[in-house]
């Protein structure tokens, strides 16, 4: 009886979690220009409009370029930090790793504002590169969290065996470590890409006159007539992130299987 009540609650909670996402496609295919009920007739014209709006395509290009660069840079940093944290002991380890992980809990507006102040004082212009710099800062902790899991699951004796059998540290890393950690690397790349693609505050402050997709969407939200296009765009983005996430999850599980570990928990 108690278990049933709990289950009913959890299902209600899931409805609460999914409510906005379920509404999204409704309005994306709705011909009415006002985002409200009741719905009108079915249309795909909002989707067509996405691909004919030049500024939107430009913003998407900026966002994808930023997200790819951020994914690669953050994952490299994540690899360094996760390897150091799981394999070596060094002075002030907790403090150093904790500091690198700090952006995970810092309000994003603080990160954005402080970077903006420094850039302006240094006389540098803002743009795509400064958004990349800011996003790497907030994505690195996620990458470290994912890769720490991968490194911790790896059997250390495999590397030692390779060294004993005459491999150099570099070839050991390439032949043993990298293949074992590869699923974690792919998961980290995908997660960082997704976070960067969706991030708004830092991009809002630091993108200058090169808007990212969220910054462009933010501008559109002020024009009611343009909102259905955003709904269509949102539907595409939701579909894209779900595909990316399922891929990331697939690789994470494959990594666990390869390391011979039982599956416990999700990404974080």
């Amino acid at each position: 009886m108690k278990g049933q009540g709990l289950k009913a609650y959890v299902i209600l909670y899931l409805v609460f979690l999914y409510a906005p996402i379920l509404l999204l496609p409704m309005f994306a295919f709705n011909s009415g220009t006002v985002i409200a009920f009741p719905l009108q007739s079915f249309t795909t014209s909002w989707f067509v409009e996405i691909f004919t709006t030049k500024a939107l395509i430009e913003a998407t290009r900026n966002s994808v370029f930023i997200a790819v660069s951020v994914a690669i840079l953050s994952t490299c940093f994540g690899l360094f930090a996760a390897r150091a944290a799981t394999r070596y002991n060094f002075p002030a380890k907790g403090g150093i790793v904790g500091f690198v992980m700090l952006p995970l809990v810092l309000p994003e507006i603080i990160v954005a504002v402080s970077l903006l102040v420094v850039l302006i004082q240094a006389g540098l212009s803002t743009g795509i590169w400064s958004v990349i710099a800011g996003h790497v800062l907030i994505c690195t902790p996620f990458s470290i969290a994912i890769l720490q899991g991968s490194f911790a699951n790896m059997d250390k004796s495999l590397e030692e065996a390779a060294i004993d059998l005459g491999e150099t540290p570099l070839s050991t890393f390439r032949l043993i470590t990298l293949p074992l950690v590869a699923p974690g690397i792919i998961a980290s790349l995908l997660i960082c890409f997704t976070i960067s693609l969706d991030e708004f505050i830092i991009a809002f402050f630091l993108s200058g006159n090169e808007p990212t997709l969220p910054v462009y969407i933010w501008g559109l939200l002020r024009f009611p007539a343009r909102v259905p296009v955003i709904m269509a765009l949102g539907t595409l983005l939701v579909a894209l992130s779900i595909i990316l996430l399922i891929t990331a999850e697939y690789f994470r599980r494959r990594g666990l299987r390869r390391a011979g570990k039982r599956d416990v928990g999700g990404f974080l």
């Binding site: 940093f77 390897r83 070596y88 002991n89 060094f90 690198v100 420094v118 690195t140 470290i144």
Partner: peptide, 28 residues
Amino acid sequence: REESKGLALIAPPFVYALLLLAAPLGAI
């Protein structure tokens, strides 16, 4: 040697966070 290896590995992300997080927070 282990210590310095660990420090060398953590250095890139740490220096990055010092430059782009600690310094800007100080500036604020």
